[in-house]
């Protein structure tokens, strides 16, 4: 009997923990409640007179946008009373697949045009609505104590090195392969550069943040990520090797409101906010190359 009760307890615990973990994985609502609590008294009074409808704007954004979009979400909430921005970060390919399968959302921000096109093809976004809002570059990262003794990009081909890349299905993984292709065509790297580097790869991660985390933990000697992934936090444990522009692939980030959004007006204003000077300044702060400047 006791063991029966125990197993029921265990089961409910299990369900509970499963519930918690999915919630944490799928959406990261920014703390609008605290924001509002901290708002000046005059605003609070106004709110009391004309209660605003509480609305949630669901934004699906590429994993590489985690830090910048979290800040953009908070700013947008501060400027739009009663609005909660629910952010869901994952590899663009995973988000595009979710949208393709009918997931409800208001805005989609992808790390490449390919997955925006896929969503357009699936009928979830109108082709004319997609706009480029930022560019990004690749960089090689390694743990601060440099266990692989990297001094230049050519060292990536050294035998015995442990490299982590993003999977080719993830935009950054595709760009990494393009960098290897370009380098192999360059005399200073040699034509077998790509093959040698790929022979050193120990894992193809399913999103760019997993690459950053495993390198900062020192689990591998080098990885290829976006410049913007070296956040202040990450910079404490990793160093970088720049990839020259002629070998680099410049990633294009498109954003669009979802066509059947229940909050079309909010979605449109969030997109314009990202493209505004204020939004672009936030993105620049995190290392993105601005789209509107060009």
């Amino acid at each position: 009997m006791r063991s029966k009760i125990l197993s029921i307890l265990m089961l409910s615990l299990l369900l509970l923990s499963a519930g918690c973990s999915t919630q944490a994985a799928t959406s990261v609502p920014t703390e609008v409640v605290e924001e509002q609590a901290a708002a000046p008294a005059t605003e609070a009074e106004e709110a009391a007179e004309a209660p605003v409808e509480a609305r949630t704007l669901t934004v699906l954004a590429a994993a590489s946008l985690t830090e910048s979009f979290t800040e953009l979400g908070l700013l947008f909430e501060a400027q739009n009373e009663g609005v909660t921005v629910a952010l869901s970060f994952a590899g663009s390919q995973a988000l595009a697949e979710q949208l393709g399968q009918g997931a409800a959302a208001d805005v989609f921000a992808s790390a490449n045009t390919k997955y925006m096109t896929a969503v357009v093809d699936a009928g979830r976004v109108n082709a004319d609505d997609a706009q480029t809002f930022a560019y990004n570059k690749l960089v090689v990262i390694y743990p601060k104590d440099n266990p692989g003794e990297l001094t230049q990009l050519q060292d990536l081909a050294k035998s015995g090195l442990m490299i982590i890349l993003a999977d080719e299905t993830v935009p950054v993984g595709k760009y990494s392969q393009e960098f290897l292709d370009k380098a192999s065509a360059d005399e200073s790297f040699g034509s077998d550069f790509k093959d040698n580097v790929l022979a050193n790869v120990v894992s193809f991660e399913d999103n760019v943040k997993a690459v950053v985390t495993k390198i900062s933990l020192g689990e591998a000697d080098a990885g290829i990520v976006y410049v913007t992934d070296i956040t202040a936090d990450a910079a404490e444990s990793i160093d970088k090797l720049d990839i020259p522009d002629e070998l680099n692939t410049i990633g294009t980030y498109p954003i669009a409101p979802v066509a059947d959004s229940q909050n079309a007006d909010l979605a449109a204003s969030f997109v314009s906010f990202v493209l505004s000077d204020e939004g672009q300044a936030v993105l620049a702060k995190y290392g993105f190359v601005n789209a509107t400047a060009e």
Partner: peptide, 12 residues
């Protein structure tokens, strides 16, 4: 597995 062993076709 995906966290500890990573993802490599044919190996993990």
């Amino acid at each position: 597995t995906i966290i500890f062993a990573g993802n490599f076709p044919g190996r993990t």
